[in-house]
Design a protein around this nucleic acid. Structure first.
Length: 469
RNA sequence: CGGGAAGUGGCGCAGUCUGGCAGCGCACCGCGUUUGGGACGCGGGGGUCGCGGGUUCAAAUCCCGCCUUCCCGACCA
């Protein structure tokens, strides 16, 4: 039986490939209401891994988790609108409840700056209460016009961090800390998706932010995906919600706030960042199952060996799964390949007669045959190797598909298939509008060495230009 | 919200032009043979043909309206 492909090849139709992977890897499907998403167990397991990795980093950065309500009084958003320009939310509004029309409509949160701001105002009385570092894991709703599973759904899951600080410098420093120590570190060391870091242009900035930092990931088709953002909000929200404190000078001051978030969109980014024609490809550190042990035949010796290897993997701290399902071997192999499990151990009577088993890695497809006694150690070392290899591969591809150019015209050409990097001075706000007209955008501004500038006003910045999701 | 395509068992599709018994492949269930890269045989179950009107003896098929999905845009607190 020959190996056969079960997905639309990426080259043929990338969006179709993405849809195929979602379906065949059993990640997610559409909900009954337009734009909503049902996340299936395998997709949710990936999200749970993302959550736990990000959550640990957020806590290490000193923020605490809390939870605020789903419903927000409509008045909060109008109050915000008075202070924040560019306010144009796609809101879901509840006008009836309990069989009656509500006196004041209630908004389903599109993000929680407003409610959290209201409570921050209560909790920050003294400079001793600052900084106030909060995070919540929640769902939010934005009535998007063009939903796509994981990438942009009407309801999505995310974490949103909200902090209040004593001064602008402290707020700026904390937003940067989150951006580097939480998002960039997670993307690089767990997802193996090194992103272009930088600040958004005024045009692309979050409404209400004085500065927005972004992690722009590169997808398999050369388009960009904003994978996480951190905002400095200045005193805009502090003004709207009266977030003040009494300083050691005995005078009342407005706080400086930040917010930062990453969402289930990351799952979409993971799919399109590493996936290939065989399906999803999960870096070992994010894979819900890192190793799957497959029995080739349902025979006692085979089952015993497979079980023992499975136990050995668990004892070694690997996330391992044992697949003893009936059905053809080829079908089961393909299933796990599509789901992206990094390492597969095939336990069959033929190898076993020689005291051996076969290991296959998902990234290169290579197979090695090793002594049964070495199976666990080999698998564990393969996981490390793959994690490093995927990061290196992603970095190579990012650089290969990022073209250094000098002019706007060249950027438009290079941006059609990948990223273009050029002096921001060669673009400017007018150039940016011209790019937008060609379905391209300035994804971020960064320093020549790729680091994040203190602001978009620094001299000698470079612009990363691309198409985006 | 504009432009394009499409909605027919779980999935992919044919049938629609030219109205006349709702079909095919995969998946699913049972039995048997299989199992080292999506196995095979035999026997089964499952569909108000997206929704609502209309025309007709008769509608998946023709007419009107609406909804949804996918792609390309616009939008993207």
């Amino acid at each position: 039986m020959a190996k056969q492909s079960v997905l639309t090849p990426q080259e043929t139709d990338f969006p179709r490939w993405y849809q195929d992977v979602l379906a065949k890897a059993e990640l997610a499907e559409n909900g009954p209401v337009r734009g909503t998403m049902v996340i299936r167990p395998w997709g949710y397991a990936i999200w749970e891994r993302i959550q736990s990795e990000i959550d640990a980093r957020i806590k290490a950065a000193g923020a605490q988790n809390a939870y605020f309500p789903l419903f927000i009084p409509e008045s909060y958003l109008t109050r915000e609108a008075e202070h924040v320009e560019g306010f144009s939310p796609e809101l879901a509004v509840v006008t009836h409840a309990g069989g009656e029309q509500l006196a004041e409509p209630v908004v389903v949160r599109p993000t929680s700056e407003t409610v959290i701001g209201e409570y921050m105002a209560k909790w920050t009385q003294s400079y001793r209460d600052l900084p106030l570092l909060l995070n919540q894991w929640a769902n939010v709703v934005r009535w998007e016009l063009r939903p796509r599973l994981f990438l942009r759904t009407s309801e999505f899951l995310w974490q949103e961090g909200h902090t209040a600080h004593i001064d602008e410098a402290d707020a700026a420093a904390y937003a940067r800390r989150i951006h580097h120590d939480v998002y960039s570190d997670f993307l690089t060391n767990v997802l193996a998706m090194p992103a272009h870091l930088g600040v958004k242009t005024a045009r692309e900035r979050f409404a209400g932010a004085t500065s927005t930092m972004t992690c722009e990931g590169m997808m398999g088709d050369g388009k960009a995906l904003q994978m996480a953002t951190s905002h400095e909000l200045g005193q805009n929200f502090a003004k709207a919600f009266d977030i003040k404190y009494l300083g050691d000078d005995g005078v009342e001051h407005l706080c400086w706030t930040t917010s930062w978030g990453a969402s289930t969109r990351l799952v979409g980014g993971l799919i399109m960042g590493h996936g290939d024609d065989n399906g999803l490809l999960l870096p070992p550190r994010i894979a819900p199952d890192q190793v799957v042990v497959l029995t080739v035949r349902d025979e006692d010796l085979v089952n015993e060996a497979a079980q023992s290897i499975h136990q050995g993997l668990l004892a070694a701290g690997a996330r391992a799964n044992l697949d003893r399902r009936a059905g053809s071997f080829g079908r089961r192999v393909t299933d796990w390949e599509i789901k992206g499990v990094p390492v597969r151990i095939e336990v069959g009577p033929r190898d076993l007669a020689e005291g051996r088993v076969t290991l296959a890695r998902r990234d290169t497809g290579e197979k090695v045959t090793v002594a049964v006694a070495d199976a666990v150690a080999t698998a564990v070392s393969l996981l490390d190797e793959m994690q490093d290899g995927l990061l290196a591969r992603a970095l190579d591809r990012r650089e290969a598909k990022t073209a250094d150019v000098a002019t706007l015209d060249e950027a438009m050409e290079a941006g059609a298939t990948g990223f273009a990097r050029l002096p921001w001075s060669a673009v400017g706000p007018e150039g940016e509008a011209a790019l937008n007209a060609k379905t391209l955008s300035v994804r971020c501004l960064q320093r020549a060495d790729g680091s994040i500038p203190d602001s978009g006003d620094e001299d000698d910045l470079v612009a990363i230009v691309a198409r985006s999701y």
